[in-house]
Every structure is written in structure tokens, then in C-alpha cells.
Nucleic acid binder design. Structure first.
Length: 579
RNA sequence: CGGGGUGUGGCUCAGCUUGGUAGAGCGCUCGGUUCGGGACCGAGAGGUCGGCGGUUCAAAUCCGCCCACCCCGACCA
């Protein structure tokens, strides 16, 4: 491809509002343009990256016997009503009516279509297992698109589905996907880790998420270098705290502290409503406090209130609380808190309270400062021995430094991008949608299903997050828009131009993806563009063209060396890792 | 959906507080000089200041409503 003819609109300045590095670089390098919130145009170079990622995914999916097909984005409402998701999913599902007034939906994933297909075409255990996939646009009316291509309302996903005769058989399909996914990320040059997931709206029981390390990621995981345990912080088991409660270490240190945590006493804390403010006011660490949240449980027509207790320095895992309650919940409004506890948020405490209490495990021990249920006052010496109705459970988010729940080593933490996930759906869709088969005994059974997704753009973005420098993107060779960027320094120099043309023809003939910068522009612009775009090899035809020598630059290391034209093919092969 | 912010040439932004001739840098066009790390000189093109309404002799600027986009939160196969 000739740069003089390629639509590659590079820009010098970061786009307004962009924060994620991948977002800035994808726009600056001329890979994408935003049409509307969370809706992007893939420009030629960006689309090449997507196609390369798709090709790697295809290869690996085909490799485990998964069959490619194509399912429609437009779905009749009927199948979504059958699966129950028409009602279960809120505004995230794009809905519209066709000209006849029939309800339609834009598919956000394809379980319904797959199950519809399976119900019609799969009848016997002899046809199973089946592995089906497609690479198709997904539509989701995200509440908040963000971070460029990381969270969008329209995106391309590889989604595959397994159909099996039993849960045991499903394990095999699941294992095949795990193996394929590991290879896909490795081949794309993205470092990702499999963690336990929450199955969320997909339903089912077992699920895992593939997480790629990136500061721009919106998820956080903890993982153990010693034993390999890894989980989303929402999910991860928060092990016991190594340190004793603050009140015990304070007691051990002897008397004389300004505030004795073990003494039951009401103290005036005017204006101090948040943990940070009370910490400041009393001069105690956050872990000396107990924070009381009042939440409204939405398991009846009218919500009921429940008090949730966490240590001051811990964060609530909403997922864990949802599981403990067995119902959805939300933070209570100020009015609800006042009605339920008789005090406005800010000074709520468990002593006394008539509400059901759910307390995090670490609060079993120790004395804490808690709200005094009186405006502008907190109370010391509060221990949960005073709250007999308290139910203890693991409610807090795990964090780096916590002991690993499997081997007790220290957990590490990382921000991550979710680049894929796999679910054991079971019969969640096959039962309501009547996707059954006859087993060996002639008995009708629901098909046991799994679903497996990978977002292509997220792989591209994660690759950039993991591989870039101050000058631009440093693509892994496997997914770079071009393998080599041939830079003609002086287009007006006949010798240089002739040599560049010759190399362009030869490299292309050798099957290499080459971008030939034949533009008549100042060299600085060309070099900057080449670094920004980030193709792994740069071949610079310049001063030494008359001798038949060009410069080969390794984008990743920045190393450059002069190479006689005759040796270029070999040197390029080495640089690109083709041996 | 709640909170905050922004909207001015293609891009990034200033101007708005205190109403009075619409600006800069980059990009673009033409001519010339340059030519290995986003060159220089000269001459140009390009804007209903997000939209509608209001106040005023006069609105980019003040007021109201709406829209779009961004950020935080809620939500998230």
C-alpha cells in the first residue's frame, strides 16, 4: 500500500476528552474515528488490525473444530421473549418495531439465535457435540460508553457456542475453548490472565473472564504469583486480615492513646460525616472505624432496609452482598435511612439498631468507632458482640496485600481490560426455548450449552495499552496493520525513489505487508508517522541509497542499522520473528 | 438515571466574568526556498460561535428550554 493513496489521517494532538492511551493513539495514528458516543468508524489501517486479529481467532477456533457461520444482528422479539431476556434486560437492549409494528431487537449476543437454530436442527445425541461461532457486530445501548474503543455501543465480537449432551461433556468443550483462548491471546501479543468470573445476565454457574493488564482497564483483579489464584476483586475471597484489629494493637501498645477504642463512649465529631473526615478529626487510621451502610433490598413490592457493616478502610463488593442477600439492592436514599434508622446518613451506627445487620467477617474481632446514631457524634468501643442479630459474611472487595485464599501468599493487584469470557450456560436457554435431543435411551433431554466471547477491538486496544512508548504504538508483529513501513526519505531524489520502488515491489512479491511512504513530504513527518503507526519494522531508504544500503529500524527496541539491500530480506525475517 | 463539565474554521483551543468589527496554533491551497526526526518565507481559502426562543439599540458573551459530546457514579453478555 502506498501512503500517498492510503487514508491514514494522523494527527499531532490528542483528541479532546480522551484519557486512555489506546484511545489517544488509535485516533492519532489514524486507525479510528468516532461517529457518535460509543460508535466508531474503523479506517483502513485500523480495519487491517481487526482483520488480523479475526484471522488469528478464526485459525484457533477452526483448530478446535468450531464451525464458522453468520447470524443476523436483527432479531425478532419472539426469541428474546422465549428466553426471558426481553423482560430481564433493561435499556441496554436496542429495540424497535418494523413497518408492520412487530417488535424487533438488535442482538447484543447470540444465545437466542443459536438456541433457536439448535432447537430446529439438533434432534439426536448422535449430532452432538457441536461447536458453532461467528464474528459479528453486537449492539448494546451502553449507559456509558467510554475509553475509546474499550466500551462501545456497537462492537465486533467472536462468539462461539457449545452444544453438549451433558455437563460432563460440556467440560470438554469448555476446556477446548480455554486452550484456544490461551493461544489466541499469546499470538496476538496480549498478556492476559484467566480469572473466575461472575456470570451476570448470561446466567449459568461457572464462568471465567480473560483479563489483559492495562491501566486504562475498568476492572480490577487480584492474583497470586505463588499458586496462580486469580479473581476479579468483586469475586475474590477476601482472606482474613494479617494485622490484628486496631483496638487490639492499640491495647497492646499500652494506655495513653488520645482515643481508647475499647472504651464505650460517645464523642462529638461535628461535621464529620465521611470516614475520611472522621479519620482526620479523631486522628485514628481508617481501619479503626466501622462504616455502616443502609441499603434497600429490592425483593418485594416495597423495599426493606438492611444495615451493612464494613471496616472503614474496606470497600463493599456489591456482588458479594447481592449474593448474601439473595436479591438486588441499592443504596438507601437519605429519606429511607432516616425512616429506618432515625438518623440521616453520616452518623449511622449499629448500636443500637433494629435493622437486620450484615457484617463483614473481619468485624468479628475488635472494637471500633462507629456512628452514634446522633447528629455530629460518633461512638468508640463498638463491638459486634453488642449486635446479636448480625450475620457475618465475606462482603468486602479483596485487594492487593490480602493473603491468598488458596496458599496464603500475598495477593497482587492489577487493573485490567476484559478481553474475553467463557460461560457454562447449562440449560438456561435450551429449556425455555425447547432445544432438546433424544439420548441413547430415547429420552428427551435439554441440550447443555456454553458460550464464549472475545471482543476484537478490546484486543487491539489492550495490545496498544501493553505495547507503546512516547512516540506511538509498538504493535506486536502478528496484528500490526503492516509488517514493514518503507520510508522514502527524499521522494525527489531519483536514486532513492528508484531503490524504494524496487524494494516495495520485491517485498510485496515476497508476501510481506508493506506500507510504502512515497509521499513528497519532509522526512521528519514521515519518521514521526512511522513511529506513531508502530509497524514492527521500518526500512528507511535515504542517503546511502546509491551504495545499495538502507536502514532497518526495529520499532520495539529503537535499534537501527544499515543493511545492504541483498541482505534485507533475511534481516527483516529475523526482526519480524519469522526466522 | 443522578452529579459535574464542554460545545467557537478540518483539528486543538483562546475570547464569555464586564454585551459593541470573531481570534491563535496546527492542518489545507498557491508560489518560492528547504529535505534524516512533525522546516522556512510570502500570498490565500475557510466560521449561521451546537439548536430554538427570550432580554437588549446591539448577543459567541446575559436568561430559558432542548440537543450532542466528555468525566464521576449507578448500570454492564
Amino acid at each position: 500500500m502506498r501512503a500517498s493513496q492510503l487514508l491514514l489521517p494522523t494527527v499531532k494532538e490528542d483528541p479532546a476528552g480522551a484519557e486512555a492511551i489506546s484511545h489517544k493513539l488509535m485516533v492519532r495514528a489514524g486507525l479510528v474515528r468516532q461517529l457518535a458516543a460509543g460508535i466508531y468508524v474503523y479506517l483502513p489501517a485500523g480495519w487491517r488490525v481487526m482483520q488480523k486479529i479475526a484471522a488469528i481467532i478464526r485459525g484457533e477456533m477452526d483448530g478446535i473444530g468450531c464451525q464458522e457461520m453468520l447470524m443476523p444482528v436483527i432479531n425478532p422479539a419472539e426469541i428474546w421473549q422465549q428466553s426471558g431476556r426481553w423482560d430481564a434486560i433493561g435499556g441496554e437492549l436496542f429495540r424497535f418495531k418494523d413497518r408492520k409494528g412487530a417488535d424487533m431487537a438488535l442482538a447484543m449476543t447470540h444465545e437466542e439465535v443459536i438456541t433457536w437454530l439448535a432447537a430446529r436442527e439438533v434432534h439426536s445425541y448422535k449430532q452432538l457435540p457441536q461447536l458453532w461461532y461467528h464474528i459479528q457486530t453486537k449492539e448494546r445501548d451502553e449507559a456509558r460508553p467510554k475509553s475509546g474503543v474499550l466500551r462501545t455501543r456497537e462492537f465486533i465480537m467472536k462468539d462461539s457456542y457449545s452444544l453438549d449432551v451433558s455437563y460432563e461433556a460440556l467440560q470438554e468443550s469448555y476446556a477446548k475453548h480455554i486452550a484456544a483462548y490461551d493461544r489466541i491471546y499469546a499470538r496476538c501479543g496480549v498478556e492476559a490472565m484467566m480469572v473466575e468470573g461472575d456470570s451476570g445476565m448470561m446466567g449459568g454457574s461457572v464462568s471465567h473472564e480473560y483479563m489483559a493488564y492495562a491501566d486504562a482497564g475498568e476492572d480490577e483483579i487480584v492474583f497470586c504469583r505463588a499458586c496462580g489464584y486469580a479473581a476479579n476483586v468483586e469475586m475474590a475471597v477476601a482472606g482474613a486480615d494479617r494485622e490484628p484489629p486496631q483496638s487490639e494493637s492499640q491495647a497492646a501498645a499500652g494506655a495513653g492513646a488520645a482515643v481508647d477504642l475499647t472504651v464505650d463512649e460517645v464523642r462529638s465529631t461535628p461535621g464529620a460525616k465521611t470516614i475520611d473526615q472522621v479519620v482526620e478529626f479523631l486522628g485514628l487510621p481508617a481501619r479503626a472505624f466501622m462504616k455502616a451502610l443502609v441499603v434497600t433490598v429490592e425483593d418485594g413490592a416495597e423495599g426493606r432496609q438492611v444495615m451493612v457493616l464494613l471496616r472503614g478502610d474496606h470497600e463493599l463488593s456489591e456482588l458479594k452482598l447481592r449474593k448474601a442477600l439473595g436479591a438486588e439492592f441499592r443504596l438507601a436514599t437519605a429519606d429511607e435511612v432516616l425512616a429506618a434508622q432515625g438518623i440521616a446518613p453520616g452518623y449511622v451506627g449499629p448500636e443500637p439498631t433494629t435493622l437486620p445487620v450484615y457484617a463483614d467477617e473481619v468485624l468479628r474481632r475488635g472494637h471500633y468507632v462507629a456512628g452514634a446514631n446522633k447528629a455530629d457524634h460518633h461512638r468508640t468501643g463498638v463491638s459486634l458482640a453488642m449486635v446479636p442479630q448480625a450475620t457475618f459474611c465475606d462482603l468486602r472487595k479483596a485487594r492487593a496485600g490480602d493473603p491468598c485464599p488458596q496458599c496464603a501468599a500475598d495477593l497482587d493487584g492489577a487493573r485490567v481490560i476484559e478481553v474475553g469470557n467463557i460461560f457454562q450456560l447449562g440449560t438456561k436457554y435450551s429449556e425455555p426455548m425447547g432445544a432438546t435431543f433424544l439420548d441413547v435411551d430415547g429420552k428427551e433431554q435439554p441440550i447443555v450449552m456454553g458460550s464464549y466471547g472475545i471482543g476484537l477491538a478490546r484486543i487491539a486496544a489492550a495490545a496498544i495499552e501493553q505495547h507503546h512508548d512516547g512516540n506511538g504504538i509498538v504493535w506486536p508483529p502478528s496484528i500490526a496493520p503492516f509488517e514493514a513501513h518503507l520510508v522514502l526519505v527524499r521522494a525527489s531524489d531519483e536514486v532513492q525513489a528508484a531503490l524504494a520502488e524496487q524494494l516495495y515491489a520485491e517485498l510485496a512479491a515476497a508476501g510481506l505487508d508493506v506500507l510504502f511512504d512515497d509521499r513528497d513530504m519532509s522526512p521528519g513527518i514521515k519518521f514521526k508517522d512511522a513511529d506513531l503507526l508502530g509497524c514492527p519494522a521500518q526500512i528507511v531508504v535515504g542517503k546511502r541509497a546509491p551504495e545499495g544500503v538502507v536502514e532497518l529500524k526495529d520499532r520495539a527496541s529503537g535499534e537501527r542499522r544499515d543493511v545492504p539491500v541483498a541482505e534485507l530480506a533475511l534481516a527483516l525475517g529475523e526482526l519480524l520473528g519469522r526466522g
